[in-house]
Design a binder for these strands. Structure first.
Lengths: 142, 142
DNA sequence: GATAGATTGACAGGTTCCTGACGAGTATTT
DNA sequence: AAATACTCGTCAGGAACCTGTCAATCTATC
């Protein structure tokens, strides 16, 4: 295939774009964007996290996370209240609605992703995962 | 394994973000952005392509490609002239400068990418490539 | 304790990319 | 030949994200 000439980065980009739109489609019926879904995932695993925490986990910036969370608060998905000990930060927590939406959306996302890689065998899937995990982390050590 | 809990898409996103910044660093000395480099690659392989062609290959839109190409024309990297047969479209071609920049930058990009996945063996790299190629194409059938 | 350094959330401004629409030109159908 | 349906490049406007900066606050060192 002619993809051998093309840069490896662009192959990763195409894969990401394609998966993103697939997940977006799966998320649309639940009224969530991909970024919002990611934020819900983070806050479900780390309740009480700060805006900066969320930004770090999703590899974004404090500002982007701030704007995103403002919208999510307006939608009643999350709740921000002052931190008990650190007066700079805010504690972020899922609301009941946020938890419910996440619980409802998660199977759809997993199903859509599984559907995409259904044609590949377990060995390739596992190898891809280790490859991706490495590429996501490589270059941060020096 | 905490990777099983996290969404697969986000792993791909992180890998793409990481590779993108690495390639960006490799490209900076040559005065090129990632998008410009991609466009140079496309026009080197398909001389005389139109704006819409470029947009299709890099999975972007005509408008984005148009803006990008306007800047590259200003920088003297590409040249746009009216198509000989179709009066709607423009023929895009690399200038001598564009070809020279591409030739100079390509080894840097390949070196940086190879450096990133240096710790992985050939089997994993090959499996990742087929996985990525599949994920970049899956879901276009319906 | 006091002071320097780092961190948090917010504001302004800019970049990049996208959606939607338009006129001009081409391809396809009747 | 005429009408319809595409496709082309481009303009207007907006969404998403980033950098740079700021005061307020916490942490660490002297």
């Amino acid at each position: 295939m002619d993809d051998s000439e093309i840069c490896l980065s662009f192959l990763v980009r195409q894969a990401w774009l394609n998966m993103r739109s697939a997940v977006d489609d799966a998320l649309a019926p639940h009224g969530l964007s991909v970024a919002q879904y990611a934020t819900l995932l983070v806050l479900d695993e780390q309740p009480g996290a700060s805006i900066a925490d969320v930004a770090r986990v999703v590899a974004s910036t404090r500002q982007s996370a701030n704007e995103l969370l403002a919208g999510m608060e307006r939608a009643g998905l999350v709740e921000r209240r002052p931190h008990s000990r650190d007066r700079r930060t805010q504690e972020l927590n899922l609301t009941a609605l946020g938890r419910q939406r996440l619980k409802a959306a998660k199977p759809s996302v997993h199903a859509r992703e599984g559907e995409l890689e259904a044609a590949l065998d377990a060995r390739e899937r596992a190898a891809a995962r280790t490859w991706l995990a490495h590429m996501a982390r490589a270059g941060h050590l020096p």
